[in-house]
Amino acid sequence: MMFQFENFSDFIYMAGHGQYVWTAYSVSLIIMAFIFVMPLFRKKNIIQKIIKKNH
């Protein structure tokens, strides 16, 4: 197994397919990070409300 590209700019360009590949990967990973982090913030908010109410 070896790195398939000569250099970094080849890796970004991907022989013309870079725009499609990088769009697919980046948007997907951003969405995934978002659905993972959102409930953490939601939980934090709820707990802070409970703390305020019981202060």
Binding site: M14, A15, G16, H17, G18, Y20, V21, A24, Y25, S28
Partner: peptide, 10 residues
Amino acid sequence: GNSFRIIYIH
């Protein structure tokens, strides 16, 4: 070619 790499997410 390289567009096939999208399979790993798709």
